[in-house]
């Protein structure tokens, strides 16, 4: 009985107007949650946590660099799950959500690369190193851009979304291989590789709370931005449909 209710409600989510309304209600709460968590995290990261004894204040970059890197990868996993659902059950709202994840994931990959570069300059003395993590992050950025480009290149939005979903699946098989091969390559070619996170596992307890807050904040933000973008895509594609027309009729 309960199972049936859940199932019916889940299927209702596949209907654009229902999804749109849910996203409209949910997104502001997620943005709000992001703002609260980020405020706490940033305050702790910038004011409470003492400077590192080796890296001084530059280690504070960790609090945005690491959550962004995690989210760049977690975002891809989310997109993969959505892509599988979209390809198997052909639910249009899920296709749109999978596509909405790509620009956000690309944004986090970009933050990760940019802040990593800004961290590397004072610590290693160079903006860029052909380190395994850096290189695979750069490749991930290109995969994200490829997905966005492929989706945008189709005139038929649905077809574009499905084809790009196949690319997402191909990418998830490849990302571990790329990471592994690049790691091998750097250890082969460079001898002593600069390790970005040599201190990560030994991070002192007093340094942990801001990292946790920022990670939660970034996850909430991903969800909020995903819903916002998916909502816009629905609105754009369904602009001639009745539900959009009547919605705008009410608000106008």
């Amino acid at each position: 009985m309960i199972w049936k209710t859940i199932k019916v409600n889940f299927h209702r989510l596949g209907s654009p107007p229902t999804f749109y309304r849910l996203a409209e209600v949910l997104a502001p709460w997620l943005w709000g949650g992001f703002a609260v968590c980020a405020a706490i995290g940033l305050y702790q990261a910038l004011y409470v946590v003492p400077p590192d004894y080796q890296q001084s204040d530059s280690f504070r970059i960790l609090y945005i660099h690491v959550p962004s890197a995690w989210q760049a990868m977690a975002g891809y996993v989310v997109m993969t799950i959505l892509a599988v659902i979209a390809l198997v059950w052909r639910i249009r709202t899920v296709e749109i959500m999978a596509m909405a994840g790509a620009p956000i994931g690309a944004a986090f990959t970009f933050i990760c690369l940019a802040t990593g570069s800004l961290w590397g300059r004072p610590m290693w003395g160079t903006w860029w190193a052909w380190d395994a993590r850096l290189t695979s992050m750069l490749v991930l950025l290109f995969i994200y851009l490829g997905i966005m480009g492929l989706y945008a290149a189709f005139e038929d939005r649905r077809k574009g979304a499905r084809v790009a979903c196949i690319l997402i699946l191909v990418g998830i098989v490849n990302i571990p291989i790329i990471h592994f091969s690049v790691e091998w390559w750097t250890t082969l070619h460079q001898g002593a590789t600069i390790r970005l996170f040599s201190g990560e596992s030994t991070l002192h307890e007093s340094m942990m709370p801001p990292l946790v807050w920022m990670t939660i904040a970034v996850k909430l933000m991903f969800g909020a931005a995903l819903l916002d973008r998916a909502r816009n895509d629905l609105l754009d594609q369904d602009r001639r449909k009745g539900w959009v027309q009547s919605r705008l009729g009410e608000t106008a």
């Binding site: 490749v139 991930l140 290109f142 995969i143 851009l145 490829g146 480009g149 492929l150 290149a153 189709f154 038929d156 077809k159 574009g160 084809v163 196949i166 690319l167 191909v170 990418g171 490849n174 291989i177 790329i178 592994f180 091969s181 690049v182 091998w184 390559w185 082969l188």
Partner: peptide
């Protein structure tokens, strides 16, 4: 095959191929 339905395939094609081909290049030249 992925870019077949688009009309500006060539640029996209190289963007799609490049990340996927990284491991091959590494192991072969290695």
């Amino acid at each position: 095959a992925l870019t077949l339905g688009t009309n500006r395939g060539s640029v996209l094609l190289s963007i799609l191929v490049f990340p996927l081909i990284v491991p091959v290049l590494i192991f072969a030249t290695g």
